[in-house]
Nucleic acid binder design. Structure first.
Lengths: 334, 334
DNA sequence: CCCCAGACTGCAAACGTTTTCATTGCCATG
DNA sequence: CATGGCAATGAAAACGTTTGCAGTCTGGGG
């Protein structure tokens, strides 16, 4: 009921100037201990909390960061948020989250809205940093930003080395005896990660003298996808292992294979990329290239905060590692 | 570089008063078409966007909603966010998200921070609405709020009927021939949902003349949990079906059972509660009581917006439904 | 020709802070 | 006793908007 009193009201209650009340909260050491206590106690009594809107306007700083992610339906991004939130909180910042659903128009609009709210910096994942309207607008806005998951030479970014990571997985599969692989991804236009992972897999296969992996792009859980999978397996040289460019997709593929009567890994090996927590709970557990999503969020946030503090933010390449789950086995086991 | 120009600067560029520029954006119909165009075009040329901080301060409305959830690691809450974000966006609102990690202190602090940012309303999920410090503070703040997932008689909330939903699942299990059930939950103190689900299961079992379900509370993925599960299965009358109070837990339990050499559903049936998208991708697919998480977020947001518009927000009980996945079968099948 | 109703625009006061610059005592120093 | 320095506080301007009120035109009706 008692709609929040203002600093001024507290001031006149106590009988001091607004400036003094402000100082009681921001520079308490400047005040006479007695006045400070007097102010703090009546502030509490009245239920006063400093209004950040006023404060932001005057100080020019909102202490808010923007986070722009494709979707929270992918636990990877959810983890990224939590990492970023943690780091932001530690620094006294709040975060304003928006999702784009992989839609570039929504992305542009959301970024604009975030800027309108005067976030001091932005962490975001775009389809392709080399060609992004959003990044263009952002650049000319002067608001610092850090890319998460994307890899770029021209912008600060925090990610794993997607090419190397994919190559590692291909090596691992080859070591198990697999030769013909397939790489399954979503639409490449929606994710530079998928592009890099595919490139890494291809390059590694070539180095190892494997036949080039077959690339299959699944649109969005349409019936056509099911057909494409069937077709892939009916090829003259069907792959013995499916490398999916993300864990969610891997899970979907495994489920799809099950409906086709194929068992993983007995009939075919499958692996993913991301390392979502959930993969470890699957039975068998999902083999996958793990990336430290929480840390990606955390470090992206730290770099952003660094930029806000004047230090330039540097790109960080975080380590990935293979999780050798039960969905991979040597080809042709009983 | 060009740090955002202000409305005033646009005004003097165009040679009109700030008021006119303001109107060009908010009440364009009031302006002479020519002036309007002149303003809009120079505004665009200068890269001007109205500063929401100034606007919020003057108008007293931030057009921002707060969302306070336990964790995004549970995809249920992620879906809730996306639903809420959608509804908020439709109404021209932004959302500020914070997570609590099921920690009541973090919860209190986060709520306070949200209020400090002057969100106009709050959507939140608390441990127990009947006894929540956060809700207390919120109440005296005068900021409208809507509970999501929680059930309460004293506060507006959007949820399923957890008791009835759990009862439905128990009926289903009984119909399959199960008699001795176990209910597995997280710490009851952290979730009134778990409490209600347990109560619903118990009541239904009694009605149907089944022996009372055994309740097992798993703390947080500790080694002790594994022991508790083992112990449960070694009981004189071991349960033939495990009803987990959420899907994430169900997945963990299934993984745990696998390490104990038990197959689901051949050796034991398992089911969950939530209906996270992921469950359908598991092999076998996870039987579960589904709740419409996205809609919960969406409706919670709508109710909140209603409150902001003066209409009182009403509690909504959304429908649940059983997803009869492959993790349940009649007891004692080969 | 006068008057009045629009239509359009400007003035200036808010909104709740922060912060620079002064002001006031007061005490110690010379 | 004058001086200077320090500690504690206040006055007032500024941040970028919105908005009630008042002002200026224009044109049409009487």
């Amino acid at each position: 009921m008692a709609s929040r009193p203002s600093l001024t009201q507290v001031a006149e209650q106590v009988g001091v100037s607004p400036a003094t009340v402000s100082r009681a909260f921001n520079r308490p050491e400047l005040l006479n201990a007695a006045t400070r206590e007097r102010i703090l106690s009546t502030a509490k009594r009245l239920g006063f909390r400093p209004n950040k809107v006023g404060s932001s306007l005057r100080s020019g700083s909102t202490r808010t960061l923007g986070l722009l992610l494709p979707t929270l339906a992918n636990p990877v991004f959810a983890a990224c948020f939590e990492g970023a939130e943690m780091a932001a909180l530690d620094a006294g910042y709040s975060v304003m989250l928006a999702t784009t659903g992989y839609d570039s128009e929504r992305e542009r609009l959301a970024a604009r809205s975030l800027l309108d709210h005067r976030v001091e910096g932005l962490i975001l994942t775009v389809a392709d940093p080399a060609d992004s309207a959003t990044l263009g607008e952002l650049g000319s806005s002067g608001v610092p930003f850090v890319l998460a998951y994307n890899e770029s030479d021209c912008h600060p970014c925090v990610s794993v080395d997607n090419r190397a990571a994919a190559a590692d997985m291909v090596s691992h599969l080859a070591a198990q005896g697999h030769r013909q692989l397939a790489m399954i991804s979503g639409p490449l236009a929606a994710s530079d990660r998928a592009v890099h992972r595919l490139a890494g897999a291809m390059a590694c296969a070539e180095t190892l003298g494997l036949p080039p992996p077959i690339h299959v792009s699944m649109s969005r859980h349409t019936a056509a996808d099911r057909g494409r999978l069937k077709e892939l397996l009916a090829a003259p040289q069907p792959p013995s292992a499916l490398f999916c460019s993300n864990d969610l997709l891997a899970a979907a593929v495994i489920a799809e294979l099950a409906t086709l009567g194929l068992r993983v890994p007995d009939d075919i090996s499958v692996c993913g990329f991301d390392g979502m927590d959930f993969g470890a709970l699957m039975v068998p557990s999902l083999a996958s290239v793990h990336q430290p999503s929480t840390d990606i969020g955390k470090h992206a946030c730290r770099e952003l905060l660094a930029a806000l503090a004047g230090r330039p933010s540097r790109s960080r390449r975080l380590p990935h590692w293979l999780f050798d789950g039960g969905t991979i086995t040597a080809p042709g086991s009983p």
